[in-house]
Design a protein around this nucleic acid. Structure first.
Length: 175
DNA sequence: GCCAACGTTGGC
DNA sequence: GCCAACGTTGGC
């Protein structure tokens, strides 16, 4: 069963283009230091899951691309490195505390789906990232929201599920 | 175990 | 740059 996620990153720190430029278009998603997100990365996120790449902390935050999870969760070794910005003195080899997955860029959205676009779509009123004060850097996305956001971004073929994106049922039909 | 203080996130 | 929301820390 494929699950879908939204992952947030400040593009000044790590952008979707940085992921595209990485060897094999793959990078570890390291530095997550929140227990709720850690639990998702360690226990729930799985190889093959789809990722919406969200650029945060901008004048106009936006979902800009699709990525794929290419590893299950494994210990985030940057927590053990005193030189790392994400060093955690409580982490040890025996108890790494923090976990990460690797993600691979799949396709940029033909056009970014901005936060204001997300907010203005009635089908996305309950999207987690739009909720006030939601700071979780890894958030679950429903299959419906996933498809809808791909369509809004101009992507007609789902590159994760390898099929046409299902068109939403028209709510009204002309005679 | 409570809770005030503090640091961080991130939209605006 | 402001500030609300949230998570963590640490004194008690």
């Amino acid at each position: 069963m494929t699950n879908f996620w939204l992952m947030k990153s400040e593009p000044d720190c790590f952008s979707y283009q940085d992921l595209v430029n990485a060897p094999g278009k793959i990078s570890s998603w390291d530095g997550v230091r929140n227990y709720q997100a850690r639990n998702l990365l360690r226990d729930v996120v799985r190889i093959g899951d789809g990722v919406l790449f969200y650029h945060s902390n901008l004048a106009d935050p936006a979902i800009v691309g699709v990525a794929r999870v290419v590893t299950n969760g494994y210990p985030d070794h940057t927590a053990l490195d005193p030189r790392s910005a994400h060093f955690d003195p409580k982490a040890t080899e025996q108890d790494p505390i923090w976990y990460m997955v690797d993600v691979q860029a799949v396709s940029a959205l033909p056009h970014p789906v901005t936060r204001s676009m997300l907010k203005s779509h009635p089908g996305l009123f309950d999207l987690d990232v739009l909720k006030r004060g939601n700071r979780l850097s890894v958030q679950p996305v429903s299959a419906c929201h996933w498809s809808l956001i791909l369509l809004m971004g101009g992507m007609l073929v789902d590159p994760i599920q390898r099929r046409c994106v299902p068109q939403p049922e028209p709510t009204q039909r002309r005679q």
